[in-house]
């Protein structure tokens, strides 16, 4: 038996599949996010060794920051796949991912500003972590802007895919801006990330909200992809049949 790997790379067969997956991811997203936030707000210590209640912004902050970085890699993956195989659907995925990625980046910067104001004493500082995260936001916005500036969808897809690929250079820089082997070698205001020195309940809450955000991203990206499919394939016969069914 041969598996047809490309079955769901056709928008016509992917559209109904995505429609079935969206509610599953949405329910998981709501349950995990609310569960994680509940655990984070009510089952964790009120005061840490140096920080007070406000550290609880971490649950939204880490989840959105992880998604921001991760979605960029996902977006480049789909863009490169599109460049290689010329598949329409992968470009549509890349477009749909960019918007959610940009929102997550903005959310991480926003929550970070609140946390920074209460703990460090400033909303913003040109520290390596924050600066590179801001560049990531500009990359997402640049991708979206370039794509919408070119009228021909296929040319827009290819041009913005190359831009996304070049921008990939920033992702390891963001990661290493606070995680380099010698902490004295990369000074920043942002604390380094430490997954082993975290109180267990805080850790559980972080992981649950991260999973919840992840599911949310799946759901909204699929929803946006479905919209893009309808938009781009509006002249095809299968979309016309879809309309007729209504």
């Amino acid at each position: 038996m041969t598996i047809n790997w490309f079955k769901y790379s056709s928008p016509a067969s992917f559209y109904p599949l995505a429609g079935k997956l969206i509610p599953v991811f949405m329910v998981l997203a709501i349950v995990l996010t609310l569960g994680g936030l509940y655990w984070g707000f009510f089952q964790t210590p009120d005061v840490l060794s140096d920080q007070k209640q406000y550290y609880r912004i971490i649950f939204v902050h880490i989840a959105s920051a992880w998604m921001a970085m991760w979605l960029y890699v996902v977006m480049v993956f789909w863009a490169v796949l599109g460049l290689i195989f010329n598949t329409r659907l992968s470009y549509m995925f890349a477009c749909a991912t960019a918007v959610t990625g940009a929102i997550m980046t903005a959310l991480s910067l926003w929550t970070g500003a609140f946390w920074g104001q209460t703990s460090w004493g400033t909303w913003w500082d040109w520290d390596p972590r924050m600066t590179t995260q801001l560049i990531l936001l500009f990359l997402y916005m640049g991708y979206i802007a370039l794509h919408s500036a070119i009228d021909d969808n296929r040319r827009a897809d290819r041009a913005s895919a190359v831009l996304a690929m070049v921008g990939l250079a920033i992702v390891p820089v963001i990661y290493y801006s606070i995680n380099c082997p010698d902490p004295n070698a990369c000074a920043s205001l942002h604390q380094e990330s430490s997954m082993e020195r975290i109180e267990t309940n805080i850790f559980i809450a972080i992981m649950t909200t991260v999973a919840g955000f992840w599911m949310y991203c799946f759901a909204v990206i699929l929803m946006r992809t479905r919209n893009i499919i309808l938009q781009r394939e509006r002249k095809s016969s299968w979309v016309a049949r879809l309309e007729a069914l209504k």
Binding site: P45, V47, L48, S49, D50, Q51, Y55, I58, S119, W120, G121, T122, D125, L189, Q191, E192, S193, S194, R197, I198, E199, I202
Partner: peptide
């Protein structure tokens, strides 16, 4: 401007 850094140990003092 003076900014305070906080450590990356998210733990209560007792623990």
């Amino acid at each position: 401007e003076v900014l305070a850094k906080h450590d990356a140990e998210y733990m209560p003092e007792e623990l």
